[in-house]
Simulated assay, not measured.
Amino acid sequence: MKTTKSVLCIILLLILTASGEVAAQIAKGVYHFDQEKEGSTVHHELKISDSYFIHSVYEKSPAKFIKTLGGFYAVENNELKVDLEFNSDYEKDSITELAIPYVIFDGNLILNTNNKMIFVRAESNEQELDGPWLFATRGPDEGQKRRGEADSRKTLKFLLDGRFQWIAFDTEGFQFKGTGGGSYTANNGTYAESIAYFSRDNSRVGATLQFDYEVKGDDWHHKGKNSQGEPMYEIWGKRGPM
């Protein structure tokens, strides 16, 4: 039944697209799509803000990170055009930009790639820390040098509707360093992450980490223990509008 509904949905979308009746901006949010491949389920997650796009792919059971890519996007003539900042598969495919035809139907985002993918938008779950953050420095804040937008080496943390992802990359040479992500909550000074994928160590999937946080101006002060159980104090700076 689910497959039949998907096929009918695609047929209707193709008819509407051909007649020029489907044209819509992409609503900000988190979108999900499950793909059956070689006997396993591959999960695709899109995080889309007003101007930034991240596509992450992984298997849930057994845990396996597959790839991630992302960057600033614009919509032109029903195409999603992305100028990538990072691509974990860059050494294999050399891709630095995307141009993906898309349509919106019944609130879902359909990407017309080689295999059409129907992404379902998750319910909105806005929280205080939602938005893009760049790692600035180790705490405490004592006037030390900070990393920021001008540096080619970046660690981006992107939080949206209860989902988080960090990505370490260097725009010089288009180098990808690592990523991890999953779900998060931020309430009353307590921030918790549940890891759904981790490019450096699949065995860390399923772990939940809890931290203390405080927002001071445009800085997020993040204290606790890292995934190895070591104490940490990080300061993240709010990135510009994305």
Rank of each mutant, 00 (worst) to 15 (best):
Y102T: 09
N125L: 10
D83V: 08
F86R: 05
V120A: 14
Y52L: 10
Y102D: 03
F72S: 11
L69P: 03
K145E: 15
P140G: 08
A136Y: 05
L134G: 11
G148K: 01
E59G: 06
E91K: 03
Y58G: 09
E142V: 14
K92L: 14
V57F: 06
G143N: 08
I95L: 09
T137G: 04
K81R: 15
E59I: 02
N125V: 02
G131N: 05
E142T: 14
D106M: 12
L109S: 08
S61Q: 12
F105M: 14
T68K: 01
N108H: 04
G143M: 05
D130H: 04
L84C: 07
L109N: 11
W133Y: 00
Y58T: 00
N112E: 12
L98D: 10
N108P: 01
E76F: 00
E126N: 12
S124G: 07
V57L: 11
I95T: 12
D130F: 04
E76V: 12
P62S: 02
T96E: 11
I100D: 06
N125R: 15
R138K: 13
M117C: 09
L134C: 03
I100T: 13
Y58P: 05
A74I: 13
D130R: 03
A122W: 00
V120R: 15
I54H: 00
